[in-house]
Simulated assay, not measured.
Amino acid sequence: MEEGPYKYIRDGNGKVSRVIRIGTRKSQLARVQTDSVADKLKELYPDVYLEIVAMSTIGDKILDTALSKIGEKSLFTKELENALEKNEVDLVVHSLKDLPTSLPAGFTIGAVLKRENPHDAVVLHPSNAGKTLDTLPEKSVIGTSSLRRAAQLKKRFPHLEFKDIRGNLNTRLKKLDEKDDFAAIILAAAGLKRMGWENRISMILEPEDCMYAVGQGALAVEVRARDVDILEMVSVLHDPDTVLRCIAERAFLKQLEGGCSVPVAVHTKVTDSQLYLTGAVYSLDGSESLKETMQTSIAADEQSVEKVDERAQRVGVTAAKLPAYSQDAAERLGIELANLLLNKGAKEILTVARQLNDAR
């Protein structure tokens, strides 16, 4: 039954419970990710009734154009956010890397779950079993829809060629296996692991070869900022280290004004209350690049504890139960690293990359 913007259900004993509707993309990976979040919520709140609502997004429908060419900031999120705005769903599960650094008004990321392996993985064509990117023959074609991956790998493996490959995980693996168009494809290790396909990973690309995308490997739960009860409910899913790493990464990308149409890459870690952020920008062919590392303390500073509103959003993330000073330090780190690269000429590299990509 419906009452106002919310949906309720009555059990056999007459007890009425609110139905929490979870929005997701229709792809198999998206459903696996959403089911994992639903399972965690069900475990924490056994009396809550959950309903999953799956839908297709622009990025799922346009499969004959490179992601970087579509020119749409919210490729995999727009339809889901429309449903959230219309109260057709109460929360949405995303891959965090799909979420722009500026969310539409009224929305917030209420949870960032513990990060899976954020690195990229090489999946070789069956005929190349046992090889590596280094040992593949000259002019072997590598499939990737990511400018970030292509720019870094072109520089690192100049003997290889790179070509766009689109589609969900299943589609891309099928294109690799059933045709001879690609010697290998590059995919996020996290997706392969969540699907139970780790055996397909031929090699994990370390940061020296290919740094990852902002937010890669982390799941985000987007909610309406005004729904304090839903925000409170999902907030227990936050993983502190992942939240701080991703706030730094998103602040870095936002300050650079980057997106999927320019090659920007990151690498973060938390060690002994220190947050380390490495960030880089690349030309499309990887010949030009700027890369720097900075760190900051995320430990308590007694003087700053009372100064900040812990309900504040930081690059779209609301994490009220995490120390505000740690979140602020992470956000500052991202901004300062971006400014360092901008002062060294990052804007020029990214502007040219954007223009060349638009002209392709």
Rank of each mutant, 00 (worst) to 15 (best):
L41M: 12
K42Q: 15
E43V: 13
E43I: 13
E43A: 15
E43T: 15
L44I: 08
P46W: 13
V48M: 14
L50P: 01
I52V: 14
A54F: 12
A54R: 11
S56T: 10
T57D: 12
T57M: 15
I58R: 10
G59M: 12
D60Q: 08
D60L: 12
D60G: 08
L63Y: 04
L63K: 08
D64W: 12
D64G: 10
D64H: 14
T65K: 06
A66D: 01
S68G: 01
S68L: 00
E72T: 13
K73Y: 12
S74A: 14
F76P: 05
F76I: 09
F76V: 08
F76R: 03
T77F: 05
T77M: 05
T77H: 00
K78V: 05
E79M: 11
E81P: 02
N82G: 06
N82T: 06
A83E: 07
L84C: 04
E85N: 11
K86C: 04
N87F: 14
N87K: 10
N87Y: 14
E88N: 12
V89M: 03
V89R: 06
L91Y: 00
L91S: 07
V92S: 01
H94D: 05
H94N: 08
H94E: 02
S95P: 05
S95H: 14
S95N: 14
L96G: 02
L96S: 10
D98L: 10
D98K: 04
D98P: 02
D98Q: 09
P100W: 13
T101L: 03
S102V: 15
S102C: 09
L103C: 03
A105I: 11
G106M: 08
F107V: 11
F107I: 13
F107L: 15
F107A: 09
I109T: 07
A111W: 04
V112L: 14
V112K: 02
V112G: 03
L113N: 06
L113G: 06
L113Q: 05
K114T: 12
K114W: 00
R115H: 11
R115L: 13
N117G: 08
P118R: 10
D120C: 11
D120F: 15
D120R: 11
A121V: 13
V122Y: 05
V123G: 08
H125D: 08
P126F: 10
S127M: 09
A129T: 14
A129E: 14
A129F: 13
G130R: 10
T132H: 09
T132P: 04
T132L: 12
L133E: 00
L133V: 07
L133R: 00
L133I: 09
D134G: 06
L136G: 00
L136S: 02
P137D: 07
K139G: 04
K139S: 12
K139F: 10
I142W: 05
I142Y: 01
G143N: 06
T144G: 01
S145W: 03
S145Q: 01
S146F: 02
S146E: 02
R148I: 02
R149E: 00
A151C: 02
A151T: 00
Q152E: 08
Q152S: 11
L153T: 03
